[in-house]
Design a protein around this nucleic acid. Structure first.
Lengths: 212, 212, 212, 212
DNA sequence: AATGAATGAGACTTCATTCAT
DNA sequence: GATGAATGAAGTCTCATTCAT
């Protein structure tokens, strides 16, 4: 608002770059330590940026954390939606979205940790954000379940409940993998997929061959 | 009932009584605030016990929290097992365990909050305890699913995965209720039950009538 | 003052015995940990006596510590005096007192630790007690040095200063042994003895043969 | 001089200045109260620096104490070495080092208290530091005694033992002054000097005249 | 004589945030 | 844009001492 006009664009670029670096570092630290145990200092240290510098870009630790969450959730939702979009049937779409998430989280433990558990360590102010993020994921699934019902591919179900149940099931598998070295989401993907499709009365292609 | 802790001390189990009072107060505070935001002072204040007195009974805030979790988890697991024991078929048993948990949590938000979310705020040292507690619940369900498979009531399934999925689904419903004022677990119980039974290939009695 | 008269003697005995046990335990703990780091609890634990029981016999941790010091100092001073008394000449007497202390401390690290260093950890209230104890030791030596001067065995010296210097020298040797695994006081006894005798103008018997 | 720390901050060595101020204040408080009874708060208060500010410069009370000791010991050792360096003979050098220490301590009770006694109140972790500091002082003396022996000025002696004995004698005189209002080290210097020189078989110039 | 639960003052340390430079 | 010294509010835990039994 008060910078030199000439440098506006160039510095605007730089600004965005620094923000990205901070978000990246913050994601790593938050994932490792959880919100509360993550130190603002440590985030700065990772990218050799002073605390003051960090506070220039983000007004508070809380805002920074939310920004990290939003950024990651956006990426993951996009992936899920894209995966769903490539399918022919609605059931396959829901199924594909689920698989995409499981596969992506399998590759990025950090992402999994931040989205699934580390937020809680923020205390009760996390509630709203969690709701927002999980609702978005639930929506992705619900949309396709609703279509499937409309198409008559699956019987009537409480699609809101079903999408939450799917999400919860997935969440538990992921957390069990993160916290107890359970099987990776990727390994469970087929079985879980079959299980969840069955729960809404669908029969997946995998049902007959992948895991007899 | 008011003032110093009753002063009828030194009976043989006064000690146990005080421990219980502490655990009760701690459960309330931890449920409200989460591990980290809970103050040891506040726990003491609730029962007019000095900090020192509290530390006489529990060596650290962390141990106190774990004790709270254990106590609550024990109660809940017992209830679930008892509910399951009253059923004729294995499928009904698993189903009953699930319902019992949903109903109990519906009545005790505090219990739900502590077991489902507030632990994470402790940081990474919570991992082990969470694993332990969730494994116990998963076991309760798995046992009955295994029986059902053995009886031929339901087709072969990865019962470990299924029990986790059930747990996760339930967890999500509960958290959604806690954090976003979603429908209470009790309200969802029938539908969720039907959904989860279907997921393992069983057909519940509810299937035909409860939700036409 | 108000006990049953008949039991007076018997219980008086018991009382003294318990006091001794406490003093013994306290000496051990204070020697190991220093005044401040010694816990009243730990002293009690050693002899399976509750804190309350301990406080029945001693009014405070501080008093207990002083009692320990007094008891040990008494023993050591007695030994030194006795050793000195067995000698013919005054110079030999002073010398013998010194040796006795060095030898005794060599055998009892605990004693050495308590008398030489651990008291300081009590804070400034230790000053008076230290003065008292060290003065007693200095007196033992000074008396004999004064006699030696009077006898003309050694030239005039500031015997007060000399006795303190002796004490200090001895103290340093002991502390160096305690803290840095230096040679034991016993090993140094002859050389130190020669050194200190020379410092007051005396020539010890050891001078010519023990260390040629 | 009043209010916030001068606000002319951020020159390159402002940091070092603050460190010095802290060390100065800490030396005063530790000397007065001993390690344990010294409050971190009081150190900060003396220089109007918040506790957090203090911890920015020193990671713990213990480290701060050690830094204080090191700083003071360095100064004193330097003085002693310099004083020794100005002398012609080795015996005079050792003697001069001793006198310098006695005189300096006489002028700075605080210094004396910290180096001689207050450290012990830290508990057993002080052992190592004490050893280190006293060894340095002993070295200063020993070096010159060794030279004197090599020169033939004094007979063969266990110079390690002798230097410790000297140190100990000096220490006792100082502590007696500090704790019991005994004569100041400065007053004792000549006599003590004579005594110690005699102990190693040297005859000082002072011998004949300073104390007729 | 002894127990041991309870007190309570207070210590050290942490860390998100600010702000002069 | 960035630095980093400084703030200050809190937080957990300790432990000598007391006192009802």
């Amino acid at each position: 608002m008060q910078g030199r006009p000439t440098l506006a664009t160039a510095s605007s670029d730089q600004r965005e770059k620094t923000r990205e670096r901070i978000l990246e570092a913050a994601a790593a630290v938050f994932a490792d330590r959880g919100y509360h145990d993550a130190l603002v200092d440590e985030i700065g240290d990772r990218i050799s940026l002073s605390k003051g510098g960090l506070y220039f870009h983000f007004p508070s630790k809380e805002e920074l954390f939310f920004s990290v969450i939003d950024r990651l959730a956006n990426k993951l939702v996009s992936k899920a939606e894209k995966a769903a979009g490539n399918q022919d049937s609605s059931v396959d779409a829901a199924s594909a979205a689920l698989r995409e998430v499981l596969f992506t989280l399998s590759r990025q433990k950090r992402l999994a940790r931040i989205l699934m558990t580390q937020g809680y360590s923020m205390g009760n102010s996390f509630a709203e954000k969690r709701t927002e993020v999980f609702d978005r994921f639930a929506d992705v699934i619900q949309v396709h379940l609703d279509s499937a019902v409309a198409e008559g591919t699956i019987p009537e179900v409480d699609s809101r409940l079903a999408s939450r149940a799917w999400l919860g099931a997935m969440n538990e598998i992921v957390v069990h993998w993160l916290y107890s070295n359970g099987p990776s989401p990727r390994e469970c993907a087929d079985d879980l997929n079959a299980l969840l499709l069955r729960s809404v009365g669908a029969v997946s292609i995998n049902e007959s061959d992948s895991r007899s």
